[in-house]
Design a protein around this nucleic acid. Structure first.
Lengths: 213, 213, 213, 213
DNA sequence: GATGAATGAGGCTTCATTCAT
DNA sequence: TATGAATGAAGCCTCATTCAT
């Protein structure tokens, strides 16, 4: 793999830009979860990435682009995992809904505390910055879209009832985002391990046809 | 303008500290909703408050104290309004729950977009800053406490069923906070005016005893 | 003068922006003549002005604005002195021409070596920067205009002959600017004190009606 | 591309240093005319030369040496062309003078706008940098020397009159340099194509014996 | 010779905070 | 109390230069 180029004495150092960019984004992720975006200096980021400070600006035009790169990565990774999980869940609306909720609150997203904090910080940055907001909103829209599909499908097939799909989806989405905020700022308020189950209960209660007694 | 009292050198300058502090806090509120906390310079704050920059540090030890003052004011105002609304709601658990939800998502909090954005920004600041986090968590805890009281009461009296009160409360709280985040960053995802109704449906679905058919 | 305000205890520190701006511009003038514009750091400028570095950006938006302020001052001062000198010279075209030349090469401009060097540096900066070039060209145009007026007038009245006024003016202007460059870079090439006399000879030779023998 | 020789590991890489140096100097020439010397980054230079940045420091010790190389080339080229032109002009003082002026203002130097701007920038750099100033002054001295020779010769032979040769030469030299400055910063002030003729008129006026009527 | 990644010093600029009036 | 000038630390970014390949 790197033998291939080293045999040719003329071929200069191979490009490793992508790798470095990932390292730097990782650095920001780590620092941002404890210091926020503004609080994360370029030196901090470089140190966390075990790189020299100048290199950050060699691979990114400016600090903000690192943030955008981070968003990209978080979203890409998240959607990949999400779609995989939902594909495994089968066709039943409730199962798919559970998979969606679990993917957000049980399995993956909450696992890495860096990611959790970073996402909350990103939300605030989205309030402030047009570019970040656009991408952030796009991410939320992607989630919303998947939820709407599941709910609309379930309602069409009679598996689900309740409010219009977009309203129900917004509620579920909000609860997920809200759990992130609370988890990142006041974790003890969420009884350990209860988030996914609680949201499943809320979603079911809103969408499940009433069982007779 | 200030000649009026100064002509009498014996008459002490009337104190207006509280008023000024409020002005300054207001200034931060306005600026923060569009620039975030770090992005709000003391000059910005002063300008928004129609005061001179030096005054900010005359009335506050430093910029962070203004933020803390803002939190205090948001929380105080919010709890006052909330408790008043719930007092009006009577004793029935569902009615109190509805009042709680409406107070957060229908009536007040979402009305002022400055407040909405500021609250989301504050959440991110809470991730970063110990002091802010403490007060922010305290605020969330106050809400959680009221929700738990309502739910536990309702369950004891048989008006409600469902998961343990603290878990249910956490879910409702999360949904509220999440609606704030979504409203501040991707408003179109929430069908206009649907937030409160949707959360009421989710809460009822989780907590209301099943009606037989 | 500053008693007036100090009697009123309410009147805060009087504005001194203009004075400070002049100080800073002076600082740049001094430093620029030995280090050029890029080479003059903001610290250098502040030190030369005996001010703190931060103050430079309190009174100017950025370093370039100081340069523009400097241009403004050099040009304003120069035109004021020039117009005064020419007014004193009377109406005869040759006398006015001599006054023009002397003002540039004998009396004033060459006196302060800071100004001389700075003007040459500014010329190069004009090559590079649109804003500087615009103002620099405007300054040259002002000189050219005055020269053209003198020459055209003299030719109309028969006191002068020679090429079209704008061409003759351009030649004289060029010679002046060129003397500045040579003086700032290779002074020994100009026999001491000869510049004005030489240019007068050149101008006369070009414009004076031939004397018969 | 470079495989051709590398296949034979024994064949040494053919040297192309001189060519590369010229390329790099050319790069600086191009960039400097629009960005100045400090403003021309090594990357800019390399890009303009269609080379990689690292190569610049392989062929030059540092950026300043490229500037010195550029001066050398400009001067060498200029003197070669100048001496050729003057050799063609014959022996008459006025003819040689005209050739000198034309070579600077009509034929060559003003043709390439890169060269023109670069020369003005170099003049400013000469104000600042000892090394550049030395070489720049040397260049001017070379011109002055040739002018003095022509004028002194002409005066000795009665073809010319006027001020001492060194003073007259300084005036002509200044006018040339000044035309460069004006051309590079405020070209419209020079009626198209008039520079050489105007300076010839000035020089003649100063040096030509008066013709009787 | 060639490439382009890597380094780190240093510059411009911002801004919280202090201070003279 | 009030003003706005003043300070200086610190951050982002640029860029000449070096280095691994």
């Amino acid at each position: 793999m790197f033998i291939s180029w080293s045999t040719n004495l003329l071929m200069p150092r191979p490009k490793n830009t992508d790798e470095r960019r990932e390292q730097i984004i990782d650095g920001l992720l780590k620092v941002m979860s404890s210091k926020g975006y503004e609080g994360a200096t370029v030196h901090d980021i470089a140190r966390a990435a075990k790189l020299s400070p100048g290199l950050v600006h060699y691979h990114f035009g400016n600090k903000r682009e690192v943030l955008e790169g981070l968003m990209e990565r978080l979203l890409d990774g998240h959607f990949a995992a999400l779609d995989a999980a939902m594909a495994q869940a089968g066709n039943a609306a409730l199962a798919r809904l559970d998979a969606f909720i679990d993917q957000h609150l049980a399995t993956g997203a909450t696992a890495n505390p860096h990611t959790l904090s970073a996402w909350v910080v990103l939300g605030a940055e989205a309030v402030t910055s047009k570019v970040v907001r656009a991408r952030y909103a796009e991410g939320l829209a992607g989630l919303q879209e998947r939820l709407v599909a599941v709910i609309a499908d379930g309602q069409r097939r009679g598996e689900l009832k309740g409010p219009p799909p977009d309203e129900a989806a917004a509620g579920i989405l909000a609860a997920i985002e809200g759990f992130y905020v609370v988890a990142a700022t006041a974790r003890p308020l969420i009884p350990r391990g209860s988030a996914a189950a609680t949201l499943r209960a809320m979603a079911r209660g809103m969408l499940e046809p009433k069982r007779r007694s």
